[in-house]
């Protein structure tokens, strides 16, 4: 298996990038894929709060941190690295990856690169699709429609929809369904991965006392995301299976 980088990003804030990263890390763990994660929300690190043991907070603009991520791709025993970009940093991260030669190495077949581009419901968010296009020639590029609210992503307006979505040729779309607000907030308070919340455990592994209804909402939501990731054959992509 080639080292694989999955970049989860968007320039627009509040579209649920970290939520998608958290769901992705749970999915990979559930499928026995050892993964390390990099949280570029420097220095705070929201992802690290939930997936602390496998997450490092990095400043993607710093050369030393770029080295921490990319120079260890070949040497690390863990072959899948998830990078959760902070708001506004998708373009900068892609440029940094290009400038340090990572995209060239992907083109040469040294690494596998998957970009999960999380979309919001605004035109500004859709504009990012075109801005991202120059960087994704050799990437497995997925548009992620995160239904954090009742947004339709302009599907009701074919002209607007085509104007933005026809600019790129993504490997597919991933639909992240809406999670019940109260369930989401309870996981926030618990500060644990979604799978730990579903298992009714604390971060320390002790029994928790979370509502069965809320755990059920999260379990159902996770199952739907897992179905989406199976549909787009993410594991096959990571394993370079046809």
């Amino acid at each position: 298996m080639k080292p694989a980088v999955i970049l989860v990003g968007a320039d627009k804030g509040g579209v649920g990038k970290t939520t998608v990263s958290r769901a992705l890390l749970d999915y990979l763990a559930a499928n026995n894929i050892l993964t390390r994660a990099f949280d570029t929300e420097f220095p705070r690190g929201t992802l690290k709060r939930f997936h602390g043991p496998i997450t490092e907070v990095v400043d993607i603009g710093e050369t030393s941190d770029q080295m921490r991520i990319l120079d260890t791709l070949n040497s690390a025993q863990i072959k899948v690295s998830v990078i959760d970009t902070r708001a506004g940093a998708l373009g900068a991260t892609l440029r940094a990856l290009r400038d340090v030669g990572f995209l060239e190495a992907v083109k040469a077949g040294e690494f596998s690169f998957t970009l999960l581009h999380v979309l919001g419901s605004s035109i500004a968010s859709l504009d990012e699709i075109a801005e991202t296009a120059p960087f994704i020639d050799d990437a497995n590029y997925f548009l992620v429609k995160n239904h954090i609210n009742a947004t339709t992503f302009f599907e009701w307006d074919p002209v607007t929809n085509r104007k933005y979505f026809d600019r790129v040729n993504p490997a597919g779309e991933i639909i992240v369904p809406k999670l019940d607000e109260m369930a989401y907030e309870q996981v926030e308070i618990a500060g644990v991965p979604f799978s730990t919340f579903v298992a009714n455990k604390t971060a320390e592994g002790d029994p928790a006392n979370s509502s069965f209804v809320l755990r059920g909402y999260v379990r159902t939501w996770q199952a739907k995301i897992a179905e989406e990731l199976r549909r787009v054959r993410l594991l096959d992509i990571l394993a370079q299976r046809d």
Binding site: D180, E181, M182, A183, S211, F212, V213, L214, Y217
Partner: peptide, 13 residues
Amino acid sequence: STQGQIAMIDRLL
């Protein structure tokens, strides 16, 4: 409401 669902279903269990 989610609160109503919790109040009932968690108690049923």
